[in-house]
Amino acid sequence: MVWWWAIIVILGTVFGVLAVAALSTMLERRLLGFFQDRPGPNRVGPFGLLQVAADAIKMLFKQDWIPPFADKPVFFIAPIIGFLAVLISFAMIPITPSWSVAGHLNVGLLWVFGMMGLHVYSVVLGGWSSNNKFALLGAMRATAQMISYEVFMGLSLLGVVMTAGSFALSDIVEAQKHVWFVIPQCLGAVVFFIAGIAETHRLPFDLPEGENELGAGYHTEYSSMKFGMFFLAEYAGMALIASLVTALYLGGWSGPILPPVVWFVVKAFLLLCFFILLRTALPRPRYDQLMAFGWKVLLPLSLLNTLVTGAVLLLRAGA
């Protein structure tokens, strides 16, 4: 890669992700409105699109309050960790064959998982340093939920990695030339998507925030742009999971006629909409039910998926 092209790709990805995160808040609010028989925000600018700008301005200029009882350095650093972890993960996503920061990296998937592991710290530290009981309860739930669901997430992917024979995301996309992995790996795809919802703590798995129980959960005490970073990290996380599912199971950029970037964006966009549809449709399970579902249903399913994939691959290699 030429150095100037690399810089363009890096900057383009960073700002692209930020723009997508900001716009998906808008998408979510308009879609929620659509699903719920109401207009949603439609007053600022054409179709209410400038609402995003208005929200950003509000977020930046609000009083940035650090509670006197908080652990200040940790309180400060927690949202940054979360935001960066999600942003850096995007480096591995191959959007098109030519547009990707490090899609060819041979530890691509492991890198993404490492960053997701880091993301847990942002929630835990944020909740802990706030020195607020609701935040603490939220952080406690988040820790258990995210660590558990990372396990199933990783296991569910083993099938894909075994079939493609690589951890690099662009290799995995290439390996789907003939058939998308969502067909042979359908079990893994479902487990991965569910775990992805839990990982981004979106409804129905938004227990760390669970506003009806915990007010705002782990970010109760956060305001202004620090809250904004948690907020953007959540939406960027949604986009990340959508992009990962696209790359890992839906053939990434591949598709007929239209240029690759359009195919990638369309697939990821539809997945984002599905995220939002889930949020409108489902209630929130209880904390212990969520954990039981993970360990008693998802774990055996992902193990079964790995086992069957391995067996099929071995049989094929033998034949």
Partner: peptide
């Protein structure tokens, strides 16, 4: 229902 985290029915029902 909203207390249990399901966001939409409350809008339908209030309509």
């Amino acid at each position: 229902i909203q207390d249990l985290g399901q966001l939409s029915p409350v809008f339908f029902i209030f309509t």
